[in-house]
Protein backbone atom coordinates (compact mmCIF):
# COMPACT_ATOMS: atom_id res chain seq x y z
CA UNK A 1 0.00 0.00 0.00
CA UNK A 2 1.11 3.53 -0.69
CA UNK A 3 2.30 4.82 2.71
CA UNK A 4 1.02 8.33 1.99
CA UNK A 5 -2.41 6.98 1.20
CA UNK A 6 -2.27 4.95 4.41
CA UNK A 7 -1.87 8.22 6.34
CA UNK A 8 -4.04 10.60 4.33
CA UNK A 9 -6.90 8.59 2.90
CA UNK A 10 -8.79 7.90 6.16
CA UNK A 11 -9.04 11.57 7.01
CA UNK A 12 -10.93 12.35 3.84
CA UNK A 13 -13.96 11.28 5.90
CA UNK A 14 -15.54 13.72 8.34
CA UNK A 15 -16.17 11.04 10.94
CA UNK A 16 -12.47 10.12 10.85
CA UNK A 17 -11.47 13.73 11.39
CA UNK A 18 -13.80 13.98 14.38
CA UNK A 19 -12.52 10.65 15.69
CA UNK A 20 -8.93 11.81 15.45
CA UNK A 21 -9.69 15.12 17.17
CA UNK A 22 -11.53 13.31 19.93
CA UNK A 23 -8.78 10.76 20.52
CA UNK A 24 -6.10 13.46 20.58
CA UNK A 25 -8.00 15.49 23.19
CA UNK A 26 -8.63 12.48 25.37
CA UNK A 27 -5.08 11.22 24.94
CA UNK A 28 -3.59 14.53 26.05
CA UNK A 29 -5.65 14.96 29.19
CA UNK A 30 -5.37 11.29 30.18
CA UNK A 31 -1.59 11.37 29.64
CA UNK A 32 -1.13 14.34 31.98
CA UNK A 33 -3.27 12.73 34.68
CA UNK A 34 -1.49 9.39 34.18
CA UNK A 35 1.80 10.93 35.31
CA UNK A 36 0.25 11.75 38.68
CA UNK A 37 -1.56 8.43 39.01
CA UNK A 38 1.60 6.43 38.32
CA UNK A 39 3.64 8.45 40.82
CA UNK A 40 0.94 8.53 43.50
CA UNK A 41 0.17 4.82 43.09
CA UNK A 42 -3.44 5.56 42.25
CA UNK A 43 -3.81 3.31 39.18
CA UNK A 44 -6.50 1.25 40.85
CA UNK A 45 -8.28 4.44 41.87
CA UNK A 46 -8.51 5.35 38.17
CA UNK A 47 -9.93 1.92 37.41
CA UNK A 48 -12.42 2.20 40.27
CA UNK A 49 -13.74 5.63 39.34
CA UNK A 50 -14.10 4.71 35.68
CA UNK A 51 -16.18 1.61 36.45
CA UNK A 52 -18.24 3.44 39.05
CA UNK A 53 -19.53 6.05 36.60
CA UNK A 54 -21.90 3.53 34.97
CA UNK A 55 -24.83 3.91 37.39
CA UNK A 56 -24.40 7.68 37.17
CA UNK A 57 -24.83 7.56 33.40
CA UNK A 58 -28.00 5.48 33.62
CA UNK A 59 -29.52 7.59 36.40
CA UNK A 60 -28.67 10.80 34.54
CA UNK A 61 -30.46 9.37 31.49
CA UNK A 62 -33.57 8.63 33.58
CA UNK A 63 -33.51 12.08 35.16
CA UNK A 64 -32.89 13.74 31.82
CA UNK A 65 -29.75 15.59 32.91
CA UNK A 66 -26.49 15.57 30.95
CA UNK A 67 -24.87 12.13 31.14
CA UNK A 68 -21.50 13.72 31.92
CA UNK A 69 -22.92 15.24 35.09
CA UNK A 70 -24.28 11.90 36.29
CA UNK A 71 -21.01 10.17 35.45
CA UNK A 72 -18.99 12.78 37.31
CA UNK A 73 -21.13 12.59 40.45
CA UNK A 74 -21.01 8.78 40.50
CA UNK A 75 -17.22 8.73 39.96
CA UNK A 76 -16.65 11.16 42.76
CA UNK A 77 -19.06 9.28 45.02
CA UNK A 78 -16.97 6.15 44.48
CA UNK A 79 -13.78 7.96 45.53
CA UNK A 80 -15.40 9.53 48.59
CA UNK A 81 -17.12 6.30 49.66
CA UNK A 82 -13.80 4.46 49.38
CA UNK A 83 -12.11 7.06 51.57
CA UNK A 84 -14.95 6.93 54.13
CA UNK A 85 -14.99 3.13 54.38
CA UNK A 86 -11.23 2.92 54.65
CA UNK A 87 -11.15 5.52 57.41
CA UNK A 88 -13.85 3.75 59.40
CA UNK A 89 -12.76 0.14 59.09
CA UNK A 90 -9.64 -1.94 59.36
CA UNK A 91 -9.79 -3.00 55.72
CA UNK A 92 -7.05 -1.70 53.42
CA UNK A 93 -7.78 0.86 50.74
CA UNK A 94 -7.35 -1.35 47.66
CA UNK A 95 -9.73 -3.92 49.11
CA UNK A 96 -12.38 -1.32 49.94
CA UNK A 97 -11.96 0.18 46.49
CA UNK A 98 -12.46 -3.19 44.82
CA UNK A 99 -15.73 -3.72 46.68
CA UNK A 100 -17.05 -0.20 46.08
CA UNK A 101 -16.36 -0.01 42.37
CA UNK A 102 -17.48 -3.52 41.49
CA UNK A 103 -20.63 -2.91 43.54
CA UNK A 104 -21.34 0.34 41.74
CA UNK A 105 -20.59 -1.25 38.37
CA UNK A 106 -23.06 -4.01 39.26
CA UNK A 107 -25.74 -1.46 40.15
CA UNK A 108 -25.06 0.25 36.84
CA UNK A 109 -25.49 -2.98 34.85
CA UNK A 110 -28.71 -3.92 36.65
CA UNK A 111 -30.13 -0.44 36.14
CA UNK A 112 -29.12 -0.48 32.50
CA UNK A 113 -31.05 -3.67 31.82
CA UNK A 114 -34.13 -2.31 33.63
CA UNK A 115 -34.22 1.09 31.92
CA UNK A 116 -35.16 1.76 28.33
CA UNK A 117 -32.36 3.92 26.94
CA UNK A 118 -31.15 5.01 23.54
CA UNK A 119 -27.60 4.21 24.67
CA UNK A 120 -25.70 1.13 23.60
CA UNK A 121 -24.00 -0.65 26.47
CA UNK A 122 -21.09 -1.51 24.20
CA UNK A 123 -20.54 2.16 23.41
CA UNK A 124 -20.50 3.08 27.08
CA UNK A 125 -18.16 0.23 27.96
CA UNK A 126 -15.77 0.42 25.04
CA UNK A 127 -16.39 3.82 23.48
CA UNK A 128 -17.56 4.73 20.02
CA UNK A 129 -15.10 7.24 18.76
CA UNK A 130 -16.16 6.83 15.13
CA UNK A 131 -19.66 7.94 16.06
CA UNK A 132 -18.88 11.19 17.86
CA UNK A 133 -20.76 14.30 16.86
CA UNK A 134 -19.50 17.84 16.73
CA UNK A 135 -21.48 18.43 19.93
CA UNK A 136 -19.63 15.57 21.67
CA UNK A 137 -16.38 17.03 20.48
CA UNK A 138 -17.19 20.45 21.92
CA UNK A 139 -18.32 18.97 25.23
CA UNK A 140 -15.12 16.94 25.53
CA UNK A 141 -12.99 19.92 24.53
CA UNK A 142 -14.53 22.00 27.31
CA UNK A 143 -14.17 19.35 30.03
CA UNK A 144 -10.75 18.11 28.95
CA UNK A 145 -9.46 21.62 28.27
CA UNK A 146 -10.60 22.93 31.64
CA UNK A 147 -9.09 19.93 33.41
CA UNK A 148 -5.80 20.31 31.57
CA UNK A 149 -5.63 24.00 32.41
CA UNK A 150 -6.15 23.40 36.13
CA UNK A 151 -3.70 20.49 36.32
CA UNK A 152 -0.98 22.36 34.47
CA UNK A 153 -1.47 25.52 36.53
CA UNK A 154 -1.26 23.57 39.80
CA UNK A 155 1.16 20.91 38.58
CA UNK A 156 3.85 21.78 41.11
CA UNK A 157 1.52 21.63 44.12
CA UNK A 158 0.03 18.35 42.92
CA UNK A 159 3.51 16.95 42.39
CA UNK A 160 4.60 17.99 45.88
CA UNK A 161 1.44 16.41 47.27
CA UNK A 162 2.28 13.13 45.53
CA UNK A 163 5.95 13.26 46.51
CA UNK A 164 5.82 14.37 50.14
CA UNK A 165 2.36 15.15 51.56
CA UNK A 166 3.84 15.72 55.01
CA UNK A 167 6.06 18.51 53.77
CA UNK A 168 3.17 19.96 51.81
CA UNK A 169 1.17 20.07 55.01
CA UNK A 170 4.07 21.40 57.06
CA UNK A 171 4.46 24.42 54.77
CA UNK A 172 0.75 25.17 55.04
CA UNK A 173 -0.50 23.89 51.65
CA UNK A 174 -4.16 22.80 51.76
CA UNK A 175 -3.46 19.08 51.44
CA UNK A 176 -7.11 18.08 51.60
CA UNK A 177 -7.93 20.43 48.75
CA UNK A 178 -5.09 18.92 46.72
CA UNK A 179 -6.21 15.37 47.52
CA UNK A 180 -9.84 15.90 46.60
CA UNK A 181 -8.88 18.26 43.81
CA UNK A 182 -6.84 15.48 42.19
CA UNK A 183 -9.80 13.09 42.58
CA UNK A 184 -12.14 15.63 40.97
CA UNK A 185 -9.72 16.18 38.10
CA UNK A 186 -9.38 12.42 37.65
CA UNK A 187 -13.17 12.03 37.57
CA UNK A 188 -13.49 14.83 35.01
CA UNK A 189 -10.81 13.23 32.86
CA UNK A 190 -12.63 9.90 32.90
CA UNK A 191 -15.95 11.57 32.09
CA UNK A 192 -14.40 13.37 29.13
CA UNK A 193 -12.94 10.10 27.83
CA UNK A 194 -16.01 7.87 27.91
CA UNK A 195 -17.20 8.70 24.39
CA UNK A 196 -13.81 7.93 22.92
CA UNK A 197 -12.60 4.81 24.71
CA UNK A 198 -15.39 3.83 27.09
CA UNK A 199 -15.28 3.18 30.81
CA UNK A 200 -13.40 -0.11 30.58
CA UNK A 201 -10.55 0.97 28.36
CA UNK A 202 -10.00 4.46 29.78
CA UNK A 203 -7.81 2.99 32.51
CA UNK A 204 -5.22 2.04 29.89
CA UNK A 205 -5.07 5.66 28.74
CA UNK A 206 -4.70 6.67 32.39
CA UNK A 207 -1.72 4.43 33.11
CA UNK A 208 0.30 3.47 30.04
CA UNK A 209 1.56 6.93 28.94
CA UNK A 210 2.70 7.90 32.44
CA UNK A 211 4.34 4.51 33.01
CA UNK A 212 6.15 4.74 29.67
CA UNK A 213 7.42 8.24 30.41
CA UNK A 214 8.42 7.27 33.97
CA UNK A 215 10.88 4.72 32.61
CA UNK A 216 12.35 7.21 30.17
CA UNK A 217 13.12 10.25 32.32
CA UNK A 218 14.13 11.53 35.75
CA UNK A 219 12.46 14.92 35.38
CA UNK A 220 8.80 15.46 35.97
CA UNK A 221 8.30 18.19 33.36
CA UNK A 222 9.85 15.93 30.73
CA UNK A 223 7.72 13.08 31.95
CA UNK A 224 4.62 15.18 31.20
CA UNK A 225 5.85 16.01 27.70
CA UNK A 226 6.83 12.42 26.90
CA UNK A 227 3.54 11.04 28.22
CA UNK A 228 1.50 13.43 26.10
CA UNK A 229 3.64 12.70 23.04
CA UNK A 230 3.33 8.93 23.49
CA UNK A 231 -0.41 9.16 24.04
CA UNK A 232 -1.08 11.46 21.08
CA UNK A 233 1.18 9.44 18.79
CA UNK A 234 -0.63 6.28 19.85
CA UNK A 235 -3.98 7.96 19.16
CA UNK A 236 -3.03 8.86 15.60
CA UNK A 237 -1.54 5.46 14.88
CA UNK A 238 -4.34 3.57 16.61
CA UNK A 239 -7.04 5.48 14.76
CA UNK A 240 -5.31 4.82 11.44
CA UNK A 241 -4.85 1.14 12.15
CA UNK A 242 -8.45 0.75 13.22
CA UNK A 243 -9.59 2.30 9.93
CA UNK A 244 -7.47 -0.01 7.82
CA UNK A 245 -8.14 -3.24 9.68
CA UNK A 246 -11.74 -2.21 10.45
CA UNK A 247 -11.19 -2.82 14.17
CA UNK A 248 -12.45 -1.14 17.32
CA UNK A 249 -10.73 2.24 17.52
CA UNK A 250 -10.47 2.53 21.31
CA UNK A 251 -8.92 -0.92 21.51
CA UNK A 252 -6.45 -0.12 18.72
CA UNK A 253 -5.27 3.03 20.52
CA UNK A 254 -4.86 1.12 23.76
CA UNK A 255 -2.93 -1.61 21.97
CA UNK A 256 -0.51 0.87 20.43
CA UNK A 257 0.04 2.43 23.86
CA UNK A 258 0.69 -0.96 25.41
CA UNK A 259 3.13 -1.72 22.59
CA UNK A 260 4.92 1.59 23.21
CA UNK A 261 5.24 0.71 26.89
CA UNK A 262 6.61 -2.72 26.03
CA UNK A 263 9.21 -1.26 23.66
CA UNK A 264 10.34 1.26 26.27
CA UNK A 265 10.38 -1.37 28.99
CA UNK A 266 12.63 -3.55 26.84
CA UNK A 267 14.85 -1.02 25.09
CA UNK A 268 14.86 2.26 27.11
CA UNK A 269 18.36 3.77 27.02
CA UNK A 270 18.95 3.81 30.75
CA UNK A 271 16.51 1.46 32.44
CA UNK A 272 15.43 -0.92 29.69
CA UNK A 273 15.88 -4.64 30.01
CA UNK A 274 18.17 -4.57 26.95
CA UNK A 275 19.06 -0.87 26.58
CA UNK A 276 19.14 0.13 22.95
CA UNK A 277 22.39 2.03 23.52
CA UNK A 278 24.07 -1.21 24.50
CA UNK A 279 22.53 -3.23 21.68
CA UNK A 280 24.12 -0.84 19.22
CA UNK A 281 27.38 -0.58 21.13
CA UNK A 282 27.10 3.11 21.91
CA UNK A 283 27.66 4.61 25.34
CA UNK A 284 27.40 2.67 28.54
CA UNK A 285 23.70 3.18 29.18
CA UNK A 286 23.38 -0.49 29.91
CA UNK A 287 26.01 -0.70 32.60
CA UNK A 288 25.17 -3.35 35.15
CA UNK A 289 24.58 -0.81 37.92
CA UNK A 290 21.48 0.46 36.16
CA UNK A 291 19.29 -2.12 37.77
CA UNK A 292 16.43 0.20 38.58
CA UNK A 293 14.35 -1.09 35.71
CA UNK A 294 13.63 -4.02 37.97
CA UNK A 295 11.27 -2.00 40.12
CA UNK A 296 9.70 0.05 37.37
CA UNK A 297 5.97 -0.57 37.07
Amino acid sequence: MDPLAFLIEPFAYDFMQRALGMSLLVAAVCAVLSCYLVLKGWSLMGDAISHAVLPGIVIAFVLGIPLAVGAFVAGLACALLTGYLKYNSRVKEDTVMGIVFSGMFGIGLVLFTKVETDQHLNHILFGNVLGVTVGDLIETAIIAGGTLLVVLAKRRDLLLYCFDPNHARAIGLPVNVLHYGLLVLLSLTIVSSIKAVGIILVIAMLIAPGATAYILTDRFERMLVIAVAVACGSSVLGTLISFHINGATGACIVLVQAFAFLMVFLFAPKRGLWPITRLFGRGNGGSPDNVRSADAP
Binding site: D157, N166, G172
Partner: peptide
Protein backbone atom coordinates in the same frame (compact mmCIF):
# COMPACT_ATOMS: atom_id res chain seq x y z
CA UNK B 1 10.44 22.71 58.64
CA UNK B 2 10.31 18.94 58.53
CA UNK B 3 13.02 16.50 57.46
CA UNK B 4 11.40 13.09 56.82
CA UNK B 5 12.79 9.65 57.54
CA UNK B 6 14.52 8.12 54.55
CA UNK B 7 12.04 5.24 54.48
CA UNK B 8 9.19 7.68 53.98
CA UNK B 9 10.58 9.01 50.70
CA UNK B 10 10.01 7.46 47.25
CA UNK B 11 13.58 7.67 45.93
CA UNK B 12 12.53 6.67 42.41
CA UNK B 13 10.42 9.80 42.09
CA UNK B 14 11.37 11.83 38.99
CA UNK B 15 12.65 14.89 40.83
CA UNK B 16 16.14 16.32 40.92
CA UNK B 17 18.04 17.51 43.98
CA UNK B 18 17.35 21.14 43.13
CA UNK B 19 13.64 20.42 42.62
CA UNK B 20 13.40 19.00 46.13
CA UNK B 21 15.17 21.97 47.69
CA UNK B 22 12.94 24.34 45.71
CA UNK B 23 9.92 22.61 47.30
CA UNK B 24 11.05 24.26 50.53
CA UNK B 25 10.25 27.62 48.94
CA UNK B 26 6.68 26.82 47.85
CA UNK B 27 5.18 28.40 50.97
Amino acid sequence: AYVPQSEDVDWNFPVLVEDVVMMGRYG
